[in-house]
Each structure stands twice: as C-alpha cells, then as structure tokens.
C-alpha cells in the first residue's frame, strides 16, 4: 500500500533521511523506533508530505505522491495524522474540531458529520465531552479527541507521531487502548513511538532507524529478542 524508495531528506547540510527503502502493506501495523534525531518523525511526515522529500519516491496505492503533479490535498484526505502535541484547534469545541474537516473538505452535511463525530467520541470514550473546549481536557483526552478527529475523515492510513510522548504516565494507557482498537479494525498504521511494549504487543513489524539510515526491520519478536545488527543491540540494551 505504501512504497518508499530511496527516500532522502536533507535539511541544510544535515542528511536526516538517507536512502530509506521499505514498503507497508494494507492493514499492517508498523512502528518506527530509534534514538532521537534518527529521522523517525521526518520519515513519518514525508508520508503525507508535511515534509517534502529531497529525493526518492513514495507511492501510495497507485499514486506516486512525490510526483509534483500529484494533488497533495487529495492524498492527505486519505491519511490521518496524530501529533505528539495533539494540535487540536483551541477555539473550537470538541465536536467542532471533529466535524470541521469532513464538512469543509468532504462537503458532508452538518447533521451527518455530527452524528458520525458522536459515534467516534463514543468509541474513544468521550461522548460527554462534545461541548468542551480542548483546554478543559486532560492530555489523554485531548489525544483521544485528536484520534477521533483524524478518523472522521475515514482515512485508509493512520500516522502517529509519538502520540504518547507528551502525556503523563497514567494517561498513556487510555490512548494506547484506543490505538489497539484501531489495530483490531484492520487499520493500516505507522507509529513513531517510544512505547516498546506497544511495538512488541501489537506491531506486525518494527523499523529501526539510526542517523537517517534504515538499519534493521523485522517482526517484533525477532527484533527485540535477536536483533541482527550491533547498532540495534546497543539501542535495545539502553532502553530495555
């Protein structure tokens, strides 16, 4: 479903991603891990072109999104994204946050969008918060609303950029639980995370990046128990 070939991203003199090649199947859950500054987030952000690759290609389905002729807006409609800092719209209520894009982008009627939003809020356990503003919510609640907001566009792919890194420890679980529900539903997910347990329990595959290079990838059991590379061994010895 997602095919990444020789993806390179350079900021100034800094090569953040260096010829990364991998592909992600439909319904697959992939976690990207690695030390900070390894290019994990940049790789994720290239998939919906929040970062413009310096060279290389990304193909989603039949669409080469790195082709300058491709309409990026059309591509983004199909890719939901959840950010570390939530990025909810602070001047809108929870319900407005979720219904804004479906109405504006997909031209769905307000009543229908609201009904759909309530279903999603129910799914993330926040049905009673529809009239609340983001600053009235805890971090975990904000992140669950952010997930609902992304899902309201009915994307085929969901990208998570360190979704639990800004949360207090006791709120991590509620967000991971929502993400696990999504896995159950067969969503294609790419998750940059420091939650090794999430990677171990639910991921189909782990991608390990260091210094912008894809060092190793494989299923979580193999990766965590018998890493093939010295670099991965060193990394795992520090964090586990």
């Amino acid at each position: 479903m997602i095919h990444i070939h020789d993806l390179t991203k350079v900021f100034g003199k800094n090569t953040v991603l260096n010829k990364v090649t991998t592909s992600i199947d439909k319904g697959e859950v992939v976690t990207i891990i690695g030390p900070s500054g390894s290019g994990k987030s940049t790789l994720l952000r290239c998939i919906n072109l929040l970062e413009k690759p310096t060279s290389g290609t990304i193909r989603i389905g039949n669409v080469t999104i790195t082709d300058p002729k491709t309409n990026i807006m059309e591509v983004r409609k199909n890719i939901g994204m959840v950010f570390q800092q939530f990025n909810l719209f602070p001047h809108m209520t929870v319900l407005e946050n979720i219904t804004y894009a479906p109405q504006k982008v997909k031209h769905i009627q307000r009543a229908e969008a609201e009904q759909k939003a309530r279903e999603l809020l129910n799914k993330v356990g926040l049905l009673d918060k529809e009239k609340a503003y983001p600053n009235q919510l805890s971090g975990g609640q904000k992140q669950r609303v952010a997930i609902a907001r992304a899902l309201a566009m009915e994307p085929e792919i969901m990208l998570f950029d360190e979704p639990t890194s800004a949360l207090d420890p006791e709120m991590v679980k509620e967000v991971l639980d929502v993400m696990k529900d999504l896995v159950e539903l067969g969503m294609t997910m790419v998750v940059v995370t420091h939650e090794m347990n999430f990677a171990k329990e639910v991921a189909d595959r782990v991608i390990f990046l260091d210094n912008g290079v894809l060092i190793e990838e494989g299923n979580p059991q193999d990766f965590f128990n018998q890493p093939k590379t010295e670099r991965a061994k060193l990394f795992l010895s520090k964090i586990l």
């Binding site: 983004r76 409609k77 994204m81 950010f83 800092q85 909810l88 894009a101 504006k104 982008v105 566009m153």
Partner: peptide, 15 residues
C-alpha cells in the same frame, strides 16, 4: 500561532 495548527489543518486536507 503554533506551527502545529497549520500542520494539523494540512494533514486533514483543509485547503
């Protein structure tokens, strides 16, 4: 305005 606001809007495909 926080850069994340624009990124969130772009990620949702909002023109």
């Amino acid at each position: 305005v926080d850069r994340g606001q624009m990124e969130a809007a772009m990620a949702l495909g909002i023109p």
